[in-house]
Design a protein around this nucleic acid. Structure first.
Lengths: 226, 226
DNA sequence: GCTTGCATCGATACGGCGTATTTGCCTGAT
DNA sequence: ATCAGGCAAATACGCCGTATCGATGCAAGC
């Protein structure tokens, strides 16, 4: 009768081997759920069921992990459609959507120089979608749209967090900040601001984003067909 | 003969009393010199020659200190000149200059919801300088310029830091990243990127910033005089 | 088959952080 | 003289990124 020489532990099956990808996935999962400040090497390691020091076999530093996270989001950003205007428009919109899926992206975007493979692939796709317009226009145009999207997304998510922090919806928010603004306006030092808050437009975030983007695209179009 | 009843300690004269302003000044000084990550409550307190806990008599939390820092920079940002276009242009330029004076501002801008008195005053000055254009245009226009400036400044300072981190000047930087880019391009997966890097324009930061800003201002102008 | 070297992984350790809590002192009132 | 209260300082706690060390298990040599 044969004896089995290597018994497989039945209760805990072989854990998937650690890898850069698994670490990255755990970090993104933590950030999606609990925000960027919940991403610590200790917590990431805990999610993966290993000690914190194990991670250093796959990443050199926490900064590198954050770079990987940013690059991973770039994989979700691609221009679609025909023509330069549609390309830039969809570039902006898909970036914004990616930031909505990963709020922490707004904290990191524009603040990290590293060009990972997905960021490069995004850049390549954007340039390819711009057609054969003069590079002297394409480069500044893409840069301008990128800059706008970075700022717009940052502001939007920051504001959304602030609203969420006080009460849930916009009604709650107005009830909270209303008195503060009333007191500020009562000083009479901000008449123009006061009139804007009272009588100005209060567009929703989608419209605000699109309007600003259209300004840029119109400005670019004027330059292209000068 | 009279005796003096309270002798002044001569070696250590009465230290200036602690205050929100002195704390804020120390924090900004640290950040200007050593970057935002050098701003810790312990170090700020050390600069002021007090224990860390003393600060909590003047600020509630480190976050509040960061809010104060951001608001302080807003005091340096004002539109100048006549007409809406000059107002928005100078708003963008003075913001960029403030970020050059305080690099850490680029790390915080757009990521902090709090409206301090100087931020409100800046907003008031901008609106006042916009003249009597329809609010339905002024509000999106200012928002768009703000968003663009946030992103542009962030990218510019991030890139500048990356260059400074490797070697000092641009020549050094190309020598460092050149081989990496060569290897990436050698894969043939990024032909459009490659042609841009090889044949595309390489404008200086000032020009890049102005070009993107002009796109937006042109787009706004088209909307105003539709 | 036993030992020895090495590589690998876990645990521990260090210095720093934001901040809560405790301790000690100084002042002014009783 | 005693005590109470307030304030500054010191200490402490839990967390962080990461350096270092110790144990463990496996491969190669005798």
């Amino acid at each position: 009768m044969l004896v089995w020489e290597r018994e497989e532990p039945p209760s805990r099956p072989v854990p998937a081997p650690l890898s850069r990808e698994r670490i990255l996935g755990a970090a993104i999962g933590l950030a999606d759920v609990d925000g960027l400040e919940a991403v610590s090497l200790r917590k990431v390691a805990a999610v993966l069921g290993v000690g914190p020091m194990r991670l250093y076999g796959y990443i050199a530093t926490k900064e590198e992990l954050l770079d990987l996270m940013v690059d991973a989001v770039h994989a979700e950003i691609r221009p679609v459609g025909d023509g330069w205007r549609e390309a830039l428009h969809s570039l902006a919109e898909t970036t914004r959507q990616a930031a909505h899926r990963h709020e922490w992206f707004a904290d990191l975007i524009g603040g990290r120089p590293r060009l990972g493979p997905h960021a490069l692939a995004r850049g390549e796709a954007v340039l390819a979608a711009m057609g054969d317009i003069d590079l002297d226009i394409v480069v500044p145009a893409v840069d301008a749209v990128d800059a706008y999207v970075i700022g717009a997304v940052r502001r939007e998510i920051t504001e959304w967090r602030a609203e969420r922090a006080t009460g849930m919806d916009k009604r709650q928010w107005q009830a909270t900040f209303g008195p503060y603004l009333e007191r500020v306006f009562a000083t009479g030092r901000f008449p123009a601001l006061e009139s804007v808050v009272r009588d100005g437009p209060h567009p929703d975030p989608d419209e605000t984003f699109r309007t600003g983007l259209d300004f840029i695209l119109d400005g670019i179009e004027a330059r292209i067909s000068n």
